[in-house]
Computed example of a mutant assay.
Amino acid sequence: MRRPLIRRLTAFAAAALLVPTLASCGSDEDDAGLVIYSGRNENLVKPLLDELEEAVGTTVAVRYGDSAELSAQILEEGDRTKAGLFFSQDAGALGALSKQGLLQKLPPATLNQVEPAFRGSNGDWVGTSGRVRVLAYDPKQVTKVPDSVHELVKPEWKGRIGFVPTNASFQSFVTGMRVLEGDEATRTWLKGLKANEPKAYENNLKVMDAVGSGEVALGLVNHYYWYEQVAEKGEDKVGAKIHFLPGGDPGALVNTAGVGIVKGSDQADVAQKAVDFLLSKKAQTYFADETKEYPLAAGVTTTTKGLPPLKSLDAPKIDLGKLESLQETLKMLQDVGLV
């Protein structure tokens, strides 16, 4: 039996009110040996999860949705949830479940495959791949790229910045700034960004296109969008370039996708096999080759041309599990008028 849910609705769970209804695909959840709630985009990970079924030796059903929404649903479902494994796009959603004691402790052999910075401090989730926040820029318009997101509130960037305020990675970055610099400083920065009239886009690919075409001078994105476009089109046809921010700037946040086993699930044994598969050389190579992310398990390195080694990045020092306060971030973004 699963343990009862201590608090049926948290501030984080309220995020479920702000996102669309879940979509489910794969095998029927009632008949599956493993049910995965996946906050990772279906287009990115479906080929890998299709192979997972053979690796774990049973049928697998995958429910795709927004990571915050899925985490909120597990919180709300409690012992009624069908999920055996939570595959999150970002660490904050895993942190929300960990905070409520809804994830099972992972064995040391699993945890030790990944650096401590990319796994839960409670030992109940582990990162599977990493991505870093960067500035995309148009070299025709930008001769000196800012070295901090704090520079983006200067008058010279008014109307020249593209971003996706509804994107989970942008919101995780804002949450990271709140953790690193406090709510007051973050709110002040957001107000300054709002005053500079940034252009909102529906997704990061459109931001990349806007920068590449010269529609905006700068874009706030994850690194892999640029590398995917380069692999598809060639660097000379992308137009945009990217800049990795130095000095532990909050805009250089390295976030991680990751997995946790839902505590009390009767799928725990097969879920552990799934975790092991996602940390295997085969899966880690998939993240490196296909999604252009950073593989996190020891022994696998990036194969993406020109991508700097993960250890060379000057990222801010932060407990990624503390990115769980999404609802507070959403409220702040609403208060300043960015969403």
Rank of each mutant, 00 (worst) to 15 (best):
T291Q: 10
L97K: 01
A117K: 15
L190G: 01
I36H: 02
Y294H: 10
V221N: 06
L135F: 03
K158H: 08
K99F: 07
F287I: 10
L97I: 08
M177A: 15
Q89I: 02
P47D: 14
K282G: 14
R80I: 00
R63E: 12
D147F: 03
P116E: 14
D249M: 01
I74L: 08
L34E: 01
K322I: 04
M177P: 01
F86C: 04
S27G: 12
V221W: 03
Y224N: 15
E151G: 05
W189V: 03
E53S: 11
Q334E: 11
D236Q: 14
S172D: 11
N196H: 11
T304M: 11
D314R: 06
Q229G: 05
Y201N: 04
A32Q: 01
K46F: 08
T59P: 01
A13C: 12
F277I: 10
T329W: 01
F277N: 04
A68H: 10
L75D: 02
E232W: 09
L70A: 06
I161Y: 02
L152H: 03
V153K: 13
Q100K: 13
E228D: 15
P139N: 12
V179I: 14
I242C: 08
L279R: 04
L338F: 08
T59I: 02
L180N: 07
V56T: 05
R3V: 07
D319S: 14
I161H: 00
Y225C: 02
P309A: 08
K273Y: 07
T110I: 15
A68E: 09
N203T: 14
I6P: 04
G234Y: 09
G39F: 02
E76M: 15
G39C: 09
D124C: 10
K305Y: 08
P165I: 12
K46C: 12
T256S: 15
K233G: 12
L5G: 15
W125C: 07
R7M: 11
G212P: 05
D314M: 10
L152I: 02
V179Y: 02
K191A: 13
W157N: 10
H243E: 11
Q171P: 06
P116N: 08
K154Y: 08
V56M: 00
I74D: 00
E53C: 09
D31I: 03
Q229P: 06
E202Y: 06
L296I: 14
V270E: 00
V270T: 13
G182I: 14
A271N: 07
F277D: 09
L152C: 11
P316S: 06
A72N: 05
